[in-house]
Design a protein around this nucleic acid. Structure first.
Lengths: 349, 349
DNA sequence: TTGTATGCGTTATCAC
DNA sequence: GTGATAACGCATACAA
């Protein structure tokens, strides 16, 4: 069996309808003036001949593929897959298709990201959304940023939750600093005075930022900064578990533990429970991102919800605006929302 | 600022290299004979002029877009996003791009699935992979299956873990019946004699199958079938929690509970813990699919792992074979693997 | 309002 | 080996 044999084209429709291909095109695109009677004639012919316009063919003259590319580390982590989901939805609403390119999170592979973007370009994608990967690191290889900006000059490029500021590119992100501040305020308001922090990957911008906010809030509350209460790690459950166990055994007076994201929070919860502690009785715990697993575990993890739908909508809108020529290097910031669940409670004297 | 202004084409390269466009094309595709010296000349010209072939343009004459479409309910559920991830990986390895089309799981909307597939067709996608959605239901609208098969005649179409057998289409799936049998055997081997079942959506094929296997295993073990030990619901944590609480309160002698998937398992675990029960001390619990949350909760959920990579590889291979004209309506079955974690233990007399 | 001719960037079929 | 030239399916400036 063979596929895609003899497709029906606008020429076929035109012949059967007794009009010219141009008229068929006009009807399809609702462009130009066409008499109502011929329009209907064409429409019925399209229907009866099972004609379906070839999007690839129209991409050439129209110079738009109505396709958006998403560059992400993976779809394993709910954080990524959740955003991808929302982006697909908003794309679909506007008649765009979403093509995804995964770069992997296990290695430091900037060349892979560039490669995927260049493949997107070959495919005439109308714009790229970049989530995670190199853009999350603080010290980026200059040759990498150079290539990124070069690409950004040719195709609308928008970074999501990226710390680095690429010129010529657009940025959409949650106000993570303000959001993490809410977490700290929440813990302090509950009376906690000895608060630990499990930060994430040392090289990532967001980690650096969270440590800064942590220090600010601790100082502002008139508390003593204790370096031994801060740990860095990687964004895995195992890392969170090990870090929490280490922090809890070395700091018996610690009553609260803030984690850089929910995955670490899940691990920290596992660690605390494995030590026989009660949460939040003995320890209050927080995460970040509000991924599904945060409400799967018992008790549910207090966290900050990112506005994934809002981020996706903003990202697409920025791209569409840029295609139309509006706005260079837009930057949009959305607030995070504190979600209080069972892992946090008042300090018990 | 404007994008996509003056792209460099093979004509530009040809002119600068002093050859014809045809020769440039030959070099790009490694097709036909071309003298080594001219090949190198063209290659360097391509490099120096930053030429990148337009995949859209070549799709027209070549009649292949090197693109695969994935139709799925959502990317929220790890089951879907995990498969999407693996599919993207195998596609990337073979130079294919993956475009996703989400149909939503909240409504019964067959027309939406057809619509997405038709949009894929307009985009000249080389094949579709269908995961979840209508194909999971037992009683499908005949007009829907008709449309599906019609599409399957025009483009390679492969269903993943689909109960219904579409003629002319291919099928790739985990041997769920055999896998669920392993779960039951595991519980029985641990000495459990009163085993409950939280099945999923009543209309879905997999739910029907799991109930059958459950009955078979109960009978084969010489145990009495008790209808009150079986519950159906939907694939949500809330449903799992409510069902487990109901089962546990109404059947005080129940020592094990098998769930149709991990999401239900997570909910069931929440329910059991909320009743003050110890898991697996008072109750053994199992899930299905081995999604990440199954190992996030405490204790980790005993489950069956699907071979997501294998499924993705098989799905793509089937499509590529069909494009080449090999094999109609292939069917591939992969085994599931029992993963024993902390929620199951021997019955305590 | 409608038709003709040309271009979009590439591959493919011929000749040479 | 290499180069014209015609598809591929559609949009559009221009002409009628």
């Amino acid at each position: 069996m063979s596929f895609q044999k003899d497709r029906v084209t606008i020429y076929d429709v035109a012949r059967r309808a007794g009009v010219s291909p141009a008229t068929v095109s006009r009807v399809i695109n609702n462009r130009g003036n066409v008499k109502e009677s011929t329009r209907e004639k064409v429409l019925t012919t399209i229907e009866s001949s099972h004609f379906s316009p070839n999007q690839i063919a129209r991409t050439l003259p129209m110079r738009t593929s109505r396709t958006i590319g998403l560059l992400a580390e993976s779809l394993f982590t709910p954080y990524f897959s959740r955003f991808a989901h929302e982006l697909d939805q908003v794309c679909a609403e506007k008649g765009y298709a979403l093509v995804i390119g995964l770069t992997g999170s296990d290695k430091y592979q900037p060349q892979r990201e560039i490669q995927v973007l260049k493949d997107f370009m070959k495919r005439q994608v109308d714009g790229f959304v970049v989530l995670g990967g190199q853009s999350n690191f603080r010290n980026i290889d200059p040759s990498f940023t150079g290539q990124m900006e070069e690409i950004g000059e040719q195709v609308p490029l928008v970074f999501v939750n990226c710390g680095f500021s690429f010129t010529e590119c657009s940025h959409v992100h949650t106000d993570e600093a303000e959001a993490f501040g809410k977490i700290m305020d929440h813990l302090l308001a509950l009376g906690h005075r000895t608060i630990g922090l499990i930060a994430g990957n040392r090289g990532k911008w967001t980690n650096h930022m969270k440590i800064s906010v942590y220090r600010e809030k601790i100082q502002a509350a008139g508390l003593k900064e204790r370096e031994e209460l801060i740990r860095t790690g990687v964004y895995t459950v195992e890392s969170g578990r090990e870090s929490s166990i280490a922090l809890l055994t070395e700091n018996q007076d610690m009553t609260a533990l803030a984690c850089a994201n929910d995955i670490l929070g899940v691990g920290a919860l596992q660690g605390a429970l494995s030590l026989g502690l009660s949460v939040p009785g003995d320890l209050s715990l927080t995460g970040f991102d509000d991924i599904d697993p945060a409400r799967y575990v018992v008790p549910g993890i207090t966290t900050v919800a990112q506005d994934y739908t809002g981020l996706a909508k903003a990202a697409l809108q920025v791209i569409l605006n840029r295609v139309k020529g509006t706005g260079d290097g837009t930057e949009i910031t959305l607030p995070g929302k504190l979600i209080v669940r069972g892992t946090t409670g008042p300090v018990i004297p």
